[in-house]
């Protein structure tokens, strides 16, 4: 009988796939950003703010941030799962990480739409 722990693995193909999908999404956004910065080598504040004032850019930036946060959650969870042996400690770290990432989501929206 396998001893199931609440913070154990969830045998997740879904997480495995999500990690790859979010990775591809991030690569796309990063390549766009690098391309933009290479095309505008003397980027000033005005151009920077103009780029982020378009709704399309804000939406894609938020999508990028969400991909980062979800990717980070899966990654950190896997690392913690492998090296922290106490279930209580794992649960504590998971809760802290989830709360931090949720806070970052709200913060990200505020940054992009509150400028």
């Amino acid at each position: 009988m396998v001893d199931r722990v609440v913070t154990g693995a969830h045998y997740g193909l879904r997480d495995w796939l999500a990690q790859r999908v979010t990775a591809v999404l991030m690569v796309t956004y990063i390549l766009f950003m690098v391309g933009y910065l290479l095309l505008h080598p003397h980027l000033g504040y005005d151009q920077w703010i103009a780029l982020f004032s378009s709704q399309v850019m804000r939406t894609f930036s938020l999508l990028f941030l969400l991909a980062v946060f979800y990717h980070a959650w899966i990654g950190v969870r896997d690392v913690v799962m492998d090296y922290i042996s106490s279930a209580g400690m794992r649960l504590t770290i998971y809760v802290v990480v989830i709360l931090a990432l949720l806070f970052y989501v709200i913060w990200g929206v505020q940054i992009l739409w509150g400028m």
């Binding site: 913060w107 940054i111 400028m115």
Partner: peptide, 22 residues
């Protein structure tokens, strides 16, 4: 793994940088 963890820990700093830049 190490670099991923570092980037995760740096997230608040990077968000601050984005906020200050905009």
């Amino acid at each position: 793994r190490v670099s991923g963890l570092l980037l995760f820990l740096a997230l608040p700093l990077l968000l601050f940088a984005l906020q200050y830049s905009l």
